[in-house]
Structure formats: C-alpha cells, structure tokens
Nucleic acid binder design. Sequence first.
DNA 1: AATGAATGAGCATTCATTCAT
DNA 2: CATGAATGAATGCTCATTCAT
Lengths: 204, 204, 204, 204
Amino acid sequence: MPAKKKNQVTTAAPERRRELLATAAEVFAAQGYNATTVRKIADAAGMLAGSLYYHFDSKESMLDEILSTFLTELWEGYDAVLAAGLGPRATIGALVTESFREIDRHRAAVAIYQRESRHLVDLPRFGYLADSQRRFEKAWLGTLERGVADGTFRADLDVRLTYRFVRDTVWVAASWYRPGGQHSPEEIARQYLSMVLDGIAVRD
Amino acid sequence: MPAKKKNQVTTAAPERRRELLATAAEVFAAQGYNATTVRKIADAAGMLAGSLYYHFDSKESMLDEILSTFLTELWEGYDAVLAAGLGPRATIGALVTESFREIDRHRAAVAIYQRESRHLVDLPRFGYLADSQRRFEKAWLGTLERGVADGTFRADLDVRLTYRFVRDTVWVAASWYRPGGQHSPEEIARQYLSMVLDGIAVRD
Amino acid sequence: MPAKKKNQVTTAAPERRRELLATAAEVFAAQGYNATTVRKIADAAGMLAGSLYYHFDSKESMLDEILSTFLTELWEGYDAVLAAGLGPRATIGALVTESFREIDRHRAAVAIYQRESRHLVDLPRFGYLADSQRRFEKAWLGTLERGVADGTFRADLDVRLTYRFVRDTVWVAASWYRPGGQHSPEEIARQYLSMVLDGIAVRD
Amino acid sequence: MPAKKKNQVTTAAPERRRELLATAAEVFAAQGYNATTVRKIADAAGMLAGSLYYHFDSKESMLDEILSTFLTELWEGYDAVLAAGLGPRATIGALVTESFREIDRHRAAVAIYQRESRHLVDLPRFGYLADSQRRFEKAWLGTLERGVADGTFRADLDVRLTYRFVRDTVWVAASWYRPGGQHSPEEIARQYLSMVLDGIAVRD
DNA sequence: AATGAATGAGCATTCATTCAT
DNA sequence: CATGAATGAATGCTCATTCAT
C-alpha cells in the first residue's frame, strides 16, 4: 500500500535496504519511534545520519515500510487460515498459532505496531493500518460469533469484550517475547490457547 | 474548563495542582510522553507553557507525580487485598477487581505506565517503578503458585507464562477502557475473571 | 543623576529601601548582574520576587541606584581632594587613599562597577558612567602630567600607560578586598602607594 | 569573513573549529559569557545557532576549549621561563614579558578568564582553572619570596599584597589592550616592569 | 554510496515583569 | 506591603532533512 517513490535505482541492492530496515526496526522497537533519532539508526547501521537519506525518503517512510511489510506477511498467513474453512475452535487455534509465528518472525515490527499504531492511524499515509484493523476485527469477531452460534463458545460472555481479551492477550506477548528463548512460538500458542479456551482453574 | 470556585483559602493550591496533573495525564496518555510538548499541556490547561513552571519543576516531575500518585493508591488497594488472607482463587479475583477499579480511577496514569515504564525504569528518579514491578510479580506469581500447590489452578501450565498472561490481559484494558462506558469496572472484572479462570469454550 | 520615578510614597521607609539595595548589591557582586535573578535577590531579602517591584521599578533600576549612589559618594571624596590644592605626589596619595576608603565602604558597588560598567556605558540610562569616567581620567591623568612637568614623576614613561597602571592597580583590589580583614584601607593604600611610587625593587 | 580557501582536504576541519572558537571568544570577551547567546555567536560566524552544535557539544564546551587552549599555551611559556634558572628579578621580568605576549596572542581568552574564572572554578569541568591558579601563585609568590630573601626586593612590603598587585596589574591590561596598537607587547612589558620595579616617582 | 556541514523549526526551560487580591 | 499566579520573550539545545562533494 505505501508507494515507494523516487527510487530510480530499483535494481540497486534490495538486500542492503532490508538490512537497514531491520536495524531501524530494532531501534524503533527498543526506544519508541519518536525517541529514536535518525542518528541512532545510522549509528546502529555504521553510517552517518545523512547517508540514510540515500536509501529512504524520510524517517517516517522507514516506519511505513517496516509496518506495511509486516502486515502484508501477516495477512498472507491469516488469509490462508481463513480460507481453509475450519470450524470456529480450529480457526481460533490456527489464528493464534499464526500470530505467535508472526511475533517470532517480526518481533520488532509487532512491538512498534503495538506502541505506535493508535496515533499513526490518523495520518493519511498510514490509512492501511485502519483497514487492517477492520479486517482483523472482522476475522476474529466473526469467528467468535460463529462459535457462539454453534455452541462452541460460551454465550454468557460479552463477545466484544471477549474479542478484545483474546486479541490483547496474543499481541501483548510481543513486548516480552524474545526469539530463540525456551519456548517455541507453537508451544506458547498451545499454552495460550489452553488458557483462553479452558481457563486456568482446575475443572470441578 | 472544570469551574471550581476557589475553596476557603487553604485548600486552593493543591487543588489547582491536581487539576493540572489530571490535564497533563490526559495529554500524556493520548499522545505519549515524548510526543507531548509542554505547550500542548499548557494549551489544554488554558495557560502559557512557561506558567506551568510556577507549579512544577519540569515536565518530568509532572510525569513523576502522576505515576507515583497512581502507584501509591494502587498499592493501598493491593495491600488490603493481600492482607485479607483469602484463598488463591479469591485473591486473584480481588486483585483483578481492584485492578479494574484502578483503571477506572486512573485510566490516564495506567495508560502512561504501560507505554513508558519500560524505559523510565532506567532513570534513578523512577526507581520506585522497579520496586513496584518486583512487588507486583511477587503478589501475582505467589498467588498463582499457591493455587497450583493447593490444586486450585492447573499444574500443566507454565506459571510464568500464566502470570504474564493474566497481568497483561488486565492492564492492557486501559488502552481501550473509557470510564462511564456501558460496563462498570466490576462487571468487566467479572467477565475477565470468568474467561481467565474457566475459559471461553463451552465445557464438555 | 538617575531619576527616581513613580515613587508616590516618598515618606515610606527609605531605610527598607537601603537595606534591599545593599542586599541586591551583594548578590550582584557575588554572581554578576546578568546571572543574578530577581528571585535570588528576593530570597536573600526574605520575600518573593514580585514583591520587590513594590520598591523598585526594575532590576535595572536597582543597579542604577546602587551605582549612582556609589559614584555620588566617590565624587564627594575626590572633589574634596582635588579642591585641596595639593602637589602632584600628595594628590595621587590622597586619591589612592580615598579610593581604598570607598572600596572599604562600597565593596559590592565597586565590584559591580568593575565588572559591568564597560557594557552599561552604552545604555542611555547609564550615561553618567561615561561622565564619571571622563572626570576620572581628567583628575588622574592631569595630576600625573602635572607631576611629570614639575619633575615629581618620571618623564620616560608613557603617561597614558602609567594612568591605566595606577587606575587598574587600585580598583582591581575590590575583587579580593574583604572589609574587616587584617589590613585597614589606609594601610593597603600606604603599601600600594609605596609600590607605585618607589617600586618593589631595592634601590641600588 | 576571513576568507580561507579550503586547505588540502585533511587540514580543513580543525581549521574551521579554530575559526569558530576565535569568533566565540571575541563575543564572550565583548559581552560576557552569560550575556552571550548562542545565536550571537552564530550570527558572528555567519551561520544559524543550531549549526554550531555540529562542531561543539555546548556553549560551555566552547568556553572550556577556549580557556584550556589558552592555559596550555600560557604554561608552556611560563614553564620555559621557570626552568631557565634565572634570578628573581630576571624571572619576574621574563614572566611579565611572557604574560604580555600571551595577552597579545589570546586577548579574548584572557579577558574571559579575568571575568569568569571566579565562578567557573566551582564547576567540576573547570577544575583545571583552580590547578592553574595554584601553580600561578606558587610561581609568582615563590619568585617574590626568593627576591626578598636575597635582597633583590624590598622586605618592608607585604609579600601577598605585592603578589596581588603585580598579578592584577599585568592581567587587567587585557581589558584595554588591543593587538596591533602603538605599543608592542614587549614595549608594554618593559614600561610595566619599570613601574613595578622602580616606581613612577623620580628618585631623590 | 557515503560524508560533512549546514538549515530551520521546534522544544523544555528561565526569568523579568505584571497584577488582582 | 506582600503574595500567588500568570505572561511572553528569550535561551540553549535537538533533530529531521538537504545538498555539494
């Protein structure tokens, strides 16, 4: 969705570009977008601040590219799950698992998204964030409602509240998750699903 | 904007201070601490930027006072719960309920805390944040472990993971909760507890 | 020379005014005029910054009154010396002695004068500083020239250089002189005169 | 304003730094450190205020570099004199001459030093000023004492008073001295020495 | 591709001053 | 006389961005 303008040299090392974006994403995630100066990114990349402008139009366009790349990949995964025609419980399970895989792959982008998306949504350039949020809500809320309708999920809970609960529960994990830790994304997904679906209390 | 006639001389000053802090907290919560300029706070308070310095030493000291006031009140509530000698399940219930009450009373402070505490911890001035986090973990993790030991909570889940799950689940609500909405803090607490303890799936 | 305007209440405690000016002079001398905030003066006087404006029009008018009071008194002393019709050597001696007496009485004012007069001269309000400097130069330089003419002072020295030498030698003492120290002003004057007139080397 | 064509690449940078420091020193000397705004320095250098921060960390670090550069050079000269093993009278002569040469070379730095060193000494960063003052006193006072002991200088004068007299007499000259004037530093030194050593009065 | 140097807008903070009470 | 609260201009400094080399 974000347009890459002014890049006359499309053939020039897209590899370098990806490296620089990964570096920028780490710094954004660690310090926050606003608190991250272009100089810090440049330091981390071993160059001078001005040199970054050869590769990117602006600090904002780096953020844009980081977030849009992440969301594009996220939706590839989600769309595959949603197209599989699974039942409500299996769909929730697959979405949660897919989400933790994305957290594993794009930890920095997810952390940035969590922290910054609320105010970015207002900028025209980041309109796709709002689109994504709408699709996101539709996918999760719809699945929950289908599950309530067919008796898979409890009918005595407020569905919107439940949606927020499940959504937050998953994504907030990006704030403490570190790739390569003791739990694999799939293992974390399994435990989270178990808690969300069956609760933490022992059954009577 | 809130028109408060000046009280009988002696109570006037701390009242103004509280008003200004409430204003600042709203702006910090809405825009983030770094992105909030002193001018924005002053605008919201109907005065000029420099005038704020008659009441406060610095922007940072406003943040400090907002957070420390909130944490002081939070711990009054938590300490009362922990001193009550309840069982694990009732303790978790009371902590969750108390937490949502605090979110109701200090929504802005909680949102600020969520967004900023990670990097503030490094500043000596905000050392009490680290103290609070330690006590927090001890209270929640301890209660969960007691519950696993006495058979209240499931033993097949990773306790640290469960701790994070419950903790985040509760506090992240500050990002969407709006006081005066359709659910009271107690109602939200009840639904959250029901999800966390018993799960969202219908029991077989 | 500086006009005291807007003091409707001329009968009101001139004593208090003098106290406040003495306080201000000490702070100006210790920290420099620019680095002295009105609040520091008020602190030293045991009141709030705004309250000083009941007594004085501005920070600058305090400075004005301090310097003009000092110069008025200085010229009373100098004029008496110059009117006495002494010879060049006795005149220089009397001027030096009188100068150290002024340093003793107005140490703060002298220190302020030394530090600030150069740039104050440019302000219309402080035009009397330039007048004073001209009269000063005339008195000292004239006396030196008379002394050279009548064989009292050496003719092989540049008179202007000698003038600056004697002038600086005396006044710079205000930067280290502390009233009530081990040397009286008269004793310091005697030693200074001895050095300036006869030199520090032992005569062959 | 001083048009220097860019040197052969490598020498360019430190040259610019030196130019900017010279400009800053002139403004500091003319207006006082506190009264000098960064914008004034920038104006004098033909750039914007913010641009100075590409070259220097802060206004204070400019002052620091100006003073430490001056003191380093001063002590090179003084140390050479002190190491020469001259008698007291020749040592005083050489020190005075060297001092006027430094005033000639670093007029602005000397004026700044005179005006600001008293309060700068308290800042840890400027601790070297106190060191320098101690060495300074040791060099001059020691030489005077040696001179009194061997009969070169008068024994009837207070040595500390004499020290202050000689010290101030020399350095205060920086406040009126203009390089390129009618007297060379050496000529001024000769006249000063003649006055200090032999006095301005004609010998009986 | 990258550097060095500069721009210009904006920021937190200070401070002399004002004024109703 | 003095206070408490505010003003508004200025200050040192930061930072995204530009651009000639």
